[in-house]
Write a protein that binds this DNA or RNA. Structure first.
Length: 163
DNA sequence: TTCTTGATTTCCT
DNA sequence: GGAAATCAAGAAA
């Protein structure tokens, strides 16, 4: 369970970190809503690796969404980071978002606040540019249908920290 | 090669 | 509450 973990990036020397409060699971094969469902493409290639990397993609030609690849090689399992709370580098986030509120409460916002774009897709989570470390697990976790997709919405693969 | 659609956010009425 | 923004897969021709 990734909820409560600390996800941090160091882009161009700027460190930003969030505590994850909202994530969604994507299972690759067998999950029609996953980009990897129809097989490997140049965009989804990072998802087919052995995990421990990030997968960033562009939606609607506008927003960068960040995933953590968790599966074994070929399984294309990934977890979409939908939301979190800033714990470091808040100034940098406000600067990137050009806003001081609602910095990281959505997938596209999170990607922008952390400074990640498609050119960072496939980066290893090894603490060099991107790191992920266990944090306190939230007391209560709500499990709900996923959001923003038109397929397989009956699968309860969205996890929200309910405090 | 051309068309349609999307793991969304923001601005306008 | 509704629509626009904008690019890359995937499907169709």
């Amino acid at each position: 369970m990734l909820l409560g973990w600390i996800f941090s990036t160091r882009i161009q020397g700027v460190v930003t970190a969030v505590r994850l409060t909202e994530v969604e699971a994507y299972m690759g094969a067998g999950d029609p809503a996953s980009h990897a469902y129809r097989g490997r493409t140049s965009r989804t290639a990072p998802m087919f690796t052995a995990g421990g990397v990030i997968y960033v993609y562009l939606v609607y030609g506008v927003h960068n969404c960040v995933n953590v690849v968790t599966g074994e090689e070929g399984t294309a399992q990934a977890v979409l980071l939908r939301g979190g709370v800033p714990v470091a580098g808040r100034d940098a986030m406000e600067n990137r978002r050009e806003r001081s509120t609602d910095l990281t409460d959505g997938p596209g916002k999170l990607g922008q606040a952390l400074g990640l774009t498609t050119q960072h897709s496939g980066l290893p989570i090894d603490g060099t540019l991107v790191s992920l470390q266990p944090g306190e697990s939230p007391g209560r976790v709500a499990t709900t249908p996923r959001i923003g997709i038109s397929k397989a919405t009956d699968r309860l693969w969205r996890f929200v920290a309910a405090e």
